[in-house]
Amino acid sequence: MTTSETAYHRLSSVPSPPVLSVEDVRVTLGRGLHRARILDGVSLTVERGETVGLIGETGSGKTTLARTILGLTPVSGGRVLVDGEDVTRLGRRKRRALRRRGVVQYVFQDPLKSLDPDLTIGESLTEPLLLQGVPGDEARERALRFLGRVHLDEQLLDRLPGRLSGGQRQRVAVARALVTEPDVVILDEPVSALDAANRVQVLSILQELKAAGIALLFVSHDLGSVAGVADRIAVLHRGEVVEVGTTRDVVTNPSHPYTQLLLRSAPTLRSASADRAERAALRARLTA
């Protein structure tokens, strides 16, 4: 969908389908004795221009859900709709054609590993555009523009990723996700590997993207980072969405014990002295 179409949907009273919709998705991985259900009936929607935070502890299935949306992990049941189109059972060619449109983009958890060490930043940034058939000069021009959008100097375009700091690499990864002007960007723990200063910088870039009307699915274990950006929060626990609500509701009035535990466990100066017995009781309720 183009920018003007997005604007039309925003202004008109005609309800547009969610840009991303996950319906009763189940994912089972492994074989034999190692077979395990990673996602169990997960449903989630991301509206146009909306930022949804997906939080949960390590192993709760956050990354698997992100990979399932991108078609990197096959579903065992349910479906994923992008712009109202079921992408779950697309053939290889159709899926590739859809991917080349660049509607959904992904920012990996580890920016160093997501950038080819042998390609310059310019080559990595232009790759999605070249795949769309954009001519080389124009692709470089656009890469330059998006590098500026994540507040990076144009001289980095000819550098190799190994020569960049962690924060610079993560911003390059965000720029690469943006060059195709996607409708929705999935960010997998985009700030968890960064120091405080870089974290603030990346989060402010995400705020800018949100203001620009790009839908974001912000995957993280850190409720604090997500709460500052997200409109809604979905809580994932052992492969199930246990709570969905507006950020205010989830943070101020969590209904599920797991969400309550997450809030109590948030590493703030105040929570450092929080009641340990209370957290232990919540943990016991969850286990039960």
């Binding site: 991108l70 990197l72 590739r96 054609a97 859809l98 991917r99 080349r100 449109r101 660049g102 959904v104 983009q105 992904y106 990996f108 580890d110 590993k113 997501s114 950038l115 080819d116 042998d118 390609l119 990595s124 790759e127 999605p128 795949l131 769309q132 690469r176 195709t180």
Partner: peptide, 26 residues
């Protein structure tokens, strides 16, 4: 199995593209 190949695949890269651009040099 690297993330940068997955990044290329997410952008719609074919097996040939991945081989030429990412695999060959490694």
């Amino acid at each position: 199995r690297s993330a940068y190949v997955e990044a290329a695949v997410i952008s719609g890269a074919s097996v040939t593209w991945v081989a030429r651009r990412h695999l060959w040099s490694k």
